[in-house]
Design a protein around this nucleic acid. Structure first.
Lengths: 344, 344
DNA sequence: ATGAAAGCGCTAACAC
DNA sequence: GTGTTAGCGCTTTCAT
């Protein structure tokens, strides 16, 4: 900013009113008479006035933005959620800052965002953040409202927007069982992650409900990434006693898993059936197209944003409300064929 | 912000110095004696002081952030670039705002970002923005510095960070020709896009250089998306006289193309060879793994961010510098087999 | 090297 | 419904 912009005073002079009236006409139109408003608007037009947000924020003692904490910006799973957040936030005028929690500098600047003046609220997509970050400001003067989305903290009563992960797992297992599979494995997300836990637990429960064995050796470690899916495939290949179907806790892992199997000459769904989780855009285009559990990602983002706005404005419930959005099974080629291998 | 934070005055009192000294100790340490600095830092610690950015920005007459204009946040291609930008920007303290230019509200708020006080600089990944947006502030008091990345404006002399798209196309075509293909098609990006133009032109030139026919019917319309790749596959399938190899201007289109062909019973690379462009993460995991032209995406982001910082600080060259970063061919399965169909 | 003081541009009491 | 005025918390001359 080197040259000067018209400021509110310029508009006031052009309109022949006080700066307060201009401010009101712009920020609280109902407080100003119809005529004055029109005059002010015209003056705004004429002067080319644009508000200085730094000044407004300073005066209002707010930051003017919210921050979204994402575990991995490069994961396409988050793109739609982010997009939903941006859409829902747009009319509010708040800036949306996106921060990758796994980034190099994470620690330092993250706290800076939370502790105070840099954010009026937070949407946290990574519940695995260090305790001191998530409870930032707890002991201090002020903690900005937080909404957890996708992930959440067990036993924490803050607002969240999630899905029923165990139910998603059950849909996947039920589908595989209906196809005739009785030897079913699971590729898990990163250890200690709440999604990993609930999906794995849901898988165990569903397996048990069908009277099927829960074999620990068929629960493969992973971390939601493509590479970890491929690595799980290597372990699958090395087994004597393989499951005939594998439910992966993310589409990315399913993609990596299928790709690696393919490279080893194993066919999907011919030799193994695979189910993913998320229904990322490419799932439908993969070879074979991936059967998966679809989450309403855009809606998750929009809902989280709306809740945060309510919290900031102290509208709505006292807080701590947990929304659980619906998931559904999308059947595609990767499980298209009923199990054919002898079930042992 | 409802309760109060310690402000600079509190620190000053705790340290027994003036607010000016605290400010200097924090923002220009070299202007303050070693001892005073230590005392101030201790007081900062003790009071739990955190700077109010709105106040600083107001006083300094700056916005405190830069905005990145992305054509489509949901496209994983941009994720790494964004990540690179965030990394390079982190130490500067500038906020990084990411805005999706294809979003509903785009028009309105975009101008607001550009015209003034909301951004100290811009990184534009979408050169297809309306003219009035890209030249925002041209006639006005002030226009924030802009760096174009990936895409650029023909004949515009502002800074940019790009790759040599025509060369990328040549690498792809050379590879296919070396494999024995003589009937080569191309799936293009969105019309009027500079990347579409340069890649298509590069394809034509490379084809001509090998003495091969440039058949307009083999240039398929697309828009970089998965779906458009799949649609191109339908057109390919409907042809009598098909190319034996197809170079797609993006990995997403290549993925959609291959997926749709697979669903129609056509094998890649058995029946057609396919080359993509970008080398997005999943390219290596697709079935078949995708041969593609790799771009240094993270580096593009970092370079663009650095250039913007230079522009903002008026360091570095007068501006208008165009960086061209290297691309390379990555050979994988989707072209792994020399052409076997009779070349007609 | 440090301090005093004047705002940056806006909004929100408070008057009228 | 509109005007006056006092800051929001910081940086930055200008003195010293």
């Amino acid at each position: 900013m080197t040259k000067r912009f018209p400021k509110i005073r310029d508009v006031a002079e052009a309109a022949g009113v006080s700066t307060a009236t201009v401010s009101r006409a712009l920020s609280a139109p109902e407080m100003v008479s119809r005529d004055t408003r029109a005059i002010v608007l015209k003056a705004v037009e004429a002067t080319g006035y644009r508000m200085n947000h730094a000044a407004r924020n300073l005066r209002r003692r707010q930051a003017g933005g919210i921050v979204v904490l994402v575990p991995n910006l490069a994961n396409p799973f988050f793109a739609q959620i982010l997009s939903g957040i941006a859409t829902a936030m747009a009319p509010s005028g708040y800036n949306v800052l996106i921060a990758d929690t796994r980034q190099a500098d994470a620690g330092s600047s993250m706290l800076d965002y939370l502790h105070n003046n840099r954010a009026d609220g937070l949407i946290v997509l990574d519940a695995g953040l260090p305790e001191e970050v998530l409870s930032a400001g707890q002991g201090r003067a002020f903690q900005p409202p937080i909404v957890f989305a996708c992930e959440w903290l067990e036993g924490d009563d803050r607002a969240s927007v999630t899905i029923d992960n165990a139910y998603g797992a059950r849909l996947a297992i039920d589908h595989l069982v209906a196809l005739g599979h009785r030897r079913i494995g699971h590729v898990m997300g990163p250890p200690d992650n709440i999604l990993t836990l609930t999906r794995a637990q849901g898988t165990r429960a569903a397996l048990a409900a069908h009277g099927l064995a829960v074999r620990e050796g068929w629960f493969f470690a992973g971390d939601f990434s493509l590479g970890s899916g491929a690595a799980a495939a290597q372990r699958w290949l090395a087994m004597d006693d393989r499951p005939t179907a594998v439910f992966c806790a993310s589409d990315a892992m399913a993609g990596g898993f299928v790709g690696a199997l393919h490279r080893a000459g194993v066919r999907v769904p011919g030799d193994v059936s695979v189910v993913g989780f998320d229904d990322i855009e490419i799932a439908a285009h993969l070879v074979p197209a991936l059967t998966t559990i679809a989450q309403p990602r855009r809606l998750i983002g929009e809902t989280a944003a709306q809740k945060l706005l309510d919290l900031i404005r102290k509208t709505g419930q006292p807080g701590g409300v947990r929304d659980v959005l619906p998931v559904e099974l999308v059947v595609r080629e990767s499980t298209g064929v009923p199990a054919r291998r002898s079930p042992r």
